[in-house]
């Protein structure tokens, strides 16, 4: 059993559940988005880690090398990073709008204001 390999899996899992924990437990909307980003990066690590071959090089073809790491996860994760930053930007824009409408970005306060408004209206 390869200890180094399993260590990379475990760190990936740790990062993933840390992101998940932030998303569930923290009420601040900006912090939630950061947690979501951390969750995403753990997926990058999982994919790229699976594509690595020890002794291989980056998949840029050259007569000097014969072993390359797997290029397909790299392609997938490039797309994932770009889409991730797009969703982050959209999420932050929504947070800014929520802040204007409710004057708060804390989930608890927003729910409280909604409840008061429902009771009053």
């Amino acid at each position: 059993m390869n200890l180094t390999g399993n260590y990379s899996y475990w760190v990936t899992i740790f990062i993933m559940i840390a992101g998940l924990y932030i998303v569930i437990a923290r009420g601040n909307l900006v912090k939630k988005l950061i947690g979501l980003g951390i969750f995403q990066t753990s997926v990058y690590l999982l994919y790229i880690g699976a594509g690595k071959i020890i002794g291989g090089t980056a998949p840029i073809l050259s007569p000097a090398f014969s072993t390359y790491s797997n290029p397909l996860p790299h392609v997938l994760i490039l797309t994932a990073i770009v889409v991730g930053v797009a969703t982050l930007a959209l999420g932050l824009a929504i947070v800014v709008r929520i802040r204007e409408a409710y004057d708060s970005i804390e989930e608890d306060e927003i729910l409280e204001k909604d409840r008061i408004e429902d009771a009053g209206g």
């Binding site: 790229i48 594509g51 690595k52 071959i53 090089t57 980056a58 390359y68 490039l78």
Partner: peptide
């Protein structure tokens, strides 16, 4: 992990 393109991005 040899993912130079991803690292740059």
């Amino acid at each position: 992990l040899d993912a130079v393109d991803v690292a740059m991005t």
